[in-house]
Each structure stands twice: as structure tokens, then as C-alpha cells.
Design a binder for these strands. Sequence first.
DNA 1: GATGAATGAGCATTCATTCAT
DNA 2: AATGAATGAATGCTCATTCAT
Lengths: 213, 213, 213, 213
Amino acid sequence: MAIKERKEDEKKRRKDLILQAAITLIQQKGFENTTMDDIAQQAELSKGTLYLYFADKSNIHYAIKKKALILLNETLQSILQKDYNGATMIKEMLSSLFDLIEKNKAFTQAMMLYEHNVKADLTHGIEEQECYDLQTELMMLILRSVQIGLVDGSMKSDVPPKILTIIIINQITGILTLILSPSPKKQKILAEYNHSVTQLMEVFLNNLLNINE
Amino acid sequence: MAIKERKEDEKKRRKDLILQAAITLIQQKGFENTTMDDIAQQAELSKGTLYLYFADKSNIHYAIKKKALILLNETLQSILQKDYNGATMIKEMLSSLFDLIEKNKAFTQAMMLYEHNVKADLTHGIEEQECYDLQTELMMLILRSVQIGLVDGSMKSDVPPKILTIIIINQITGILTLILSPSPKKQKILAEYNHSVTQLMEVFLNNLLNINE
Amino acid sequence: MAIKERKEDEKKRRKDLILQAAITLIQQKGFENTTMDDIAQQAELSKGTLYLYFADKSNIHYAIKKKALILLNETLQSILQKDYNGATMIKEMLSSLFDLIEKNKAFTQAMMLYEHNVKADLTHGIEEQECYDLQTELMMLILRSVQIGLVDGSMKSDVPPKILTIIIINQITGILTLILSPSPKKQKILAEYNHSVTQLMEVFLNNLLNINE
Amino acid sequence: MAIKERKEDEKKRRKDLILQAAITLIQQKGFENTTMDDIAQQAELSKGTLYLYFADKSNIHYAIKKKALILLNETLQSILQKDYNGATMIKEMLSSLFDLIEKNKAFTQAMMLYEHNVKADLTHGIEEQECYDLQTELMMLILRSVQIGLVDGSMKSDVPPKILTIIIINQITGILTLILSPSPKKQKILAEYNHSVTQLMEVFLNNLLNINE
DNA sequence: GATGAATGAGCATTCATTCAT
DNA sequence: AATGAATGAATGCTCATTCAT
């Protein structure tokens, strides 16, 4: 039914509109300081309409996170299918990840902030679980590239792949936190050393995985 | 003047009392979910009294962070003065850091949460600067041990020490985030791999700094 | 014109459909807790359609009340036309009333709740007046049976029939309130004394009207 | 401690002030249509202050009901201790009850409305239980006077005292509902018959309890 | 007629901060 | 110094009603 499809489409567009408005504001003021009124105004919709598309504020958060994770996982997935060796693979993966993040600070926030902020009162239903699953999937994608690299000899390590993956994830988290830091620190540290995050990751990976190009 | 000193002392004791109350509650409920009422009650003081010692809620946050950083820096400083080689030094430092953190989750929260939460409205005066300085000092202490290690041969790397330090800090941040994560992730990831954070750091450092024991 | 009639019929059917949906929900959750969305969903109609048949939510209320009162009055009317003496008549009337109520708690609610709930902002037009008239008619029907009973000697009282009628109505109201009460009271009182409302009315009537069977 | 007492007193005065404001407004607009803002404004306090004295809106309702019931029970209790026969006792009781009600329509509303309105979501704690207990006590006081009347011969009935009491309570409820009715009904019915509620009760009681003066 | 997306006024509740005593 | 009552702006969420299609 074409009509139903168009409606479905329209609904998705609206959801995206709201999400984009939320992302813009969260980027400027952070999640907690962004009110539903703000989002409504930014989206040029009424507050009530927001609740037509998202059950509550936390669901907007999860939707942003989910969107970011899906995009990211898709990108990593496509890299995994290319004819790269493991070392190239993981470097490409992280490069893509940081590209994505640079383009959209709110994505970064969505991925990071959530951990601390969302009120732990009740479980937030399917949305939360979905995000958790996507995060697990993300980890798996990285794990795969590490395993490939160890097998094809493009990287060497006695450490179990899973442990290596956790260390890589931790490093990513650390960098994301650095990026999200209020300006003085970011500017003073990142700028002072005059190294992009990509370069930091490069050095980190070369050492962790004994990559020799 | 003895009287002035005693008063100063008394004031510090009171501040500590409040801080301890705040730490206890933040540990249980997180910073955002801890109200000034809660803190006052926990400290067995009136709410008004809190404002006699701290200009506002964010200052309580900074004070906790400051306290944590001072304690940490002192510990690292004392390690730096011991007759260790660089590799041992840095391992001792991180071991101490995680000991401290394990004992006091609110310290961890103070160090991490702030980055995202504190309202960016106004500058938070000296407190914020002090925390920033202490964080810089912390970095310097780690940097020193890296430099020592590279000189005494207990670690090897072509990477500039400053870069290595940033990577180490990032890894620490990542682990702290992991520790602070709501239970499912912490339990499923940390527990599943059955590796303590200390062990993770050990592997990470050995690889980053080519430590051979 | 047959077409017009059919349309009229269809309209009435739709109105009844909506009303039935509303009744079902009000029975479960009460009038205030039943939203127009709820009703639309239950009736499998769109929310907008509701407003095609009822000017506003309060009119749905009045329509339910009206429906209940019409049904009730018809029943009482038919009893009035039977070859009963006054005493039997009034007992039959009340028995029918409670039968009706037992079958449909929403009717009871419609009859009772309205008094307190409906916003007194504006006059609710004809609907309200109609309900008022029907209530007056209900009273008249009871009054007639009282008058008949006093004349045929099946009941005795020096009190003017109108006063007796008001007392009877009050007792009915009281019982309806008891029935509508949240469970603890209903269960503890009604159940404890193990007397059905019909029995209560029986005793009450026998005494008020000196009925001797 | 005189200070503590004074504070306690002051607190009670404030609670009463708020309650009185609430009563005034509820009398005019009903409970549902009275907002916390309204009450705050009427009490010439800020909205926040209301929450210093009452945990939530429903507690204001319960407090009014409780106040009404305590006052009523005290009055009935004092009548019970007088040297009246049962018939006089119960008439005095109902007379007092209606006096009280006439003076304060919001009391009546508090007693009646609650049954239907307060959201049945959760139990409302001690307050609700206290009101329930007070209502039970009220019933007991009436029951006692009935029992006394049956024993001292001032009233006669074969019906168990408990049943008589329920019938009396039902009649009271009915009259209260009548009183609370929006003006047209009250005026048209009450005025038309030109009988005060006290007179209605008199007739009702004489017949139910076969009182002969 | 029918739809259902959009509206937005309205509401209860929270909490950091102030200030008279 | 210490108190804690008072404040009131801020916020997430609801829901009857409207109206373009």
C-alpha cells in the first residue's frame, strides 16, 4: 500500500526532524540543559507533538544513540567486508569512527553521556536493550578485525583478542571524553600537542598490536 | 594567632564533614540525584550552613574533585620520589590510582562526571581553575615517570613521552568510564572476561611501553 | 425519506458504539481517567470522529446518563402500568433500579459522578437540561407509586408523599455512593454485614412506608 | 521546650492557613479544578511552600477530610456522653452534623468527593488509612446511639442496629449529595419543598426508628 | 464523513538558593 | 555562625480540542 508507506516515511522524517533539533541543542547545551520546550521550539513543533513521536525525553536520548550506533556499525561492517588485512582494517575502522564523531558532537555525547545521566529509576524498555545490543555488536566488529589481524600476521600479540578489544574500546572512550571536554582542556591539551585524535589512535594501535607497515 | 588557627581548623573540619556527606550520597545516587537537602541531612547540618562553606552545589563538586586529585597527586608524588625504575614507577602509580578509586566511587564520579554535567553557564571561579591545575599536575607526574622509564631503559618507545602520557590518560579515563557504567555492562563485560582493571592496565602498559620484566 | 432515516439510524448506531466504548472504559477506570484517545481506540474510531457525534467530553457523559435514565424511566413506567398495589410497585421499581445498576457500573457512575465532576464553567446546553428533566421524571414515577400505595392502603404515612419520595431518592443515592466506593469500604462494609443492597432497601422501605406484607 | 512548642504551633497554623485557602477554593471550584497555584495564591504563599507542609495535592485533600471528620467525631462523641435518651441523641447528632456541613461546604465535598476522585493509582499512605479509620469511628458513634435508643425504649425496631446504622449513613450520604449538587437542582428541589435537610432527617428517623415523642 | 497529526494551555512537582531570626 | 522556612523559576508530561486532507 503506497499510502501506508508514504505515511511511514513521513513519520520517520518527522522523527528525524525532532532528533536533529535535539542533536543541535544537545550539542550546544548538553542533554540535561536541553528541555523538551527547547527541542519543540528548535523543531518548530509544539511540545505535544514531541510526545507523539517519543514516549519521553529519555527515548529521544536512546534514539540519538541508536542512530549513531547503527550508522557506525554499518560503516564498520562494510570495512570488515573489504579486502584489507587486519591492521588496515582496524585503522580504517577507527578512522571512520572519528570521522563520524567529528561531524557530529551530539552523537559522541549520546554515546558517552548516557552512561552517567539517564536516571536509573526504571528500565527504559526495548530502546535501552537495543542500544546495549548495538554496543555489543560494535565491540564484536572490532574484535573480528583484531582476530583477523592476528591470523594474517599484520599484527602480533600474546594477549587474548578479547582483552585487546577492551583496551581499544577504553582508549576510544578516553578520547571521546577528551573531545567532549569543555573547551579549555580540549584546546589546551589537544591543541598544545598539536596532534589529532586520529594520530593518537595510530600510535596507540601500532604499539598495542605491534603493527609494522 | 591561635584563635584564628583554631577557627580555620574548625572550618576545614566542617567542610570535610559536608564533603564526606556529599561523597557518601553521590556514591549511592549520583551527583544529579543528590540534592542539597540530602547533603544537609546526611551531614546533620542545616541547608543554609552548606552555603556558608560552599558557594553553590557545583563548588561541592569541585571540592570533592580537588580532594581526590590532591590525594592522588600526593600519592603519585611519593612514588616518584622512591628508588624505582620508570616501569615500576608507572605501574605503582596506576595501581595506587585504582586502589583509590576502588575505595571511593564518588571520587571517580567527581573526576569523570564533571566533564559533562556541570552547567556551562558561568565560570566556576577559582575552584575550577584549581582542579584544572591539579589535573595538569597529575599528567605531569605521569609524564615524569614515563620520561624516567625511557631514560633508565625500563621502557622503550619512539613516541614522544607527552603523547605516551596522553594515551595513558585516555586509557585511564576509559577504564573509569567502564567502572562507572550501570551494572549490566560492568558485570557483563568486566565479569565475563574475569580480568580486573589492574590487569587490563598491566597489559596495556607492557605493550605501549615495551616493558620487559 | 428512507435515505434520511437510514442516515439517522446509522448515526444513532455510531453514537451508541462510542457510548458503549466509553461505558466500558469508565467502568474500568472512571470518567476522569478515561481519555478521548482511550474511547476512540476502544470504539475503533478516530479521535476526530468522536467530535462528530459529541460536542465535547462532557456530552459523552450526559449521553451516558441520559441513556441510563431513559432505560430506567421506561422500566419504572412499565411497572407503574402493571396491576400492582403501591407497595409492590415501589419495591419492584427499586429492584429494577438495582438490577440495572448491578449490570452496568458505568451507569451508576454516570448518574452519580456528574454531580461533582463536570466543570461548572459553561452551561452544557440541552443535554444537561434533558438529564435534569429525566431525573425529575424519575422522581415523579417514584412519587406516583408512593401516592398509589398511600391510597390503596398498602403503605401508611402521615408524611407528604413528596417528602417521602425525596427520602427514598436520598437513600438510593446513598447506596449508589456505597457501591461506587473504592473496594476496601465496599468489601468491608457490604461484605461484613453480608446484606445485599436490595435487602437494605427492603428494610428501609418497610419502615419508612409501614409496609406490612 | 517552649521554642519547639511555638514552632510546632506555628507549623500547625501554617498548615491550617493552607488548608483554609484550599477549602475556600474547593468550595468555589471543586477539588479537580483547584490547582496548587491557586491554593498558593489564595494562601499568599509560594507554591513551593505548599509542598513544605503537604507531600502532594492528595494529602491536602486527606487533611481537609481528616479535619472535618475529627471535628465531627468530637462533636458526636460529646453528644454521646450527655444524659440524653437514644432518640434525642441521634437527632442531636444529625443536627450537629448538618450544622457543621452548612457552615463549610468544602468539608462536605472533602467527605464525599474523595470517594470518586482521588486517583486510585497507589495507596496514599497513612493519611488514607486515618481517614478510613475516622469514618469507621463515625459509624460506631452512630451505632452506639442507636443501640442506646433501642435499649432505653426511645426507639423501636426489629432490624439489627448495624443495618439501621448503614441505612442512616446512606440517608446522610444522599442528603450530602443533594446539598453538593449544582445550584439548579438544589434550589429547585430543596427550595420547592421548602424543607430544610434537618426536617428531612427528622421525618426519616422518626419512621425508621419508630420514635414517638 | 472520517481521519489522526498537531496543538498548547495547563499542571503537579522539584530543588538550588536566599534571608530573616 | 547557624538555621530552616520560603521562594519561584524550571520542567516533563497530559489531554481535550481543532483542522487540513
